[in-house]
Amino acid sequence: MRSDLLTADGLTKRYGRFTAIEDVSFTLRAGEVLGLVGESGSGKSTTVRCLVGLTKPDAGTVSYDGEPLQGRAAWHRFRREAQMVFQDPYASLNPRMTVAEIVGEGLRVHGIERTAAGRRARVTTLLGQVGLDAGDLDRYPRSFSGGQRQRIAIARAIAVEPRVLICDEPVSALDVSVQAQVVNVLRDMGRELGLSILFIAHDLAVVRYLCDRLVVLDQGRIAEQGTREQIYDNPQAPYTRSLLAAVPIPDPAAERERRHRQKESAR
């Protein structure tokens, strides 16, 4: 059995009378890719924000590597060992920093590379790993496309050699061909670096491709969790079933049949 790395236990967050998430518990195990899926308003974002400390949950705890995330020392370690990739590559990079500064910042603040030259060398290697080149070091984010920006964000995240990567809808703002490139980069990096990845998404086709296990969120509660095979081949919760049944298939005959089935079951 793989060891538990990041655990959410009974997370609850309310905004006034609105309950964003209630009693959300799951575990990211070492070396696995865990998908957190649901529609808009399902509480995916709130869950992530609670996990990484951007929002304080009203109840529940987050544990990292067996220890509850409490106190400065625990958070300090977590901030280095868990990195994040955000959804919107146009908003998640500081427009006034160069690629070298953006990717090198973690190396600097965590004291991994103390000299500028050392950081530059490391950043060059990292850019190579995500499919960018050294010529991009001194350019600003605005001169990159969405897909390239997301590669920069991934390079920034893996720069500090994290154990956990939290990806909040990292490909949903990208075009299909670029999405496929970025998904491959994530998959390769995850394997090469032995990362544990929490992958938040609404696209069940992408999740199926990347994730070993899934947590399905419905209106702030967990509808179902299980392995990829369990969820896709034999979904238990009606919500999961309806989500799966709505995934469009790029094949006219299959799609017609799928939609016919949908209409029948709606009756």
Binding site: A91, E105, G106
Partner: peptide
């Protein structure tokens, strides 16, 4: 509140 500042916070920038 912008995402790039949040991403820096999450990364542990003091």
């Amino acid at each position: 509140a912008s995402t790039y500042v949040e991403s820096a916070r999450v990364m542990g920038v003091p």
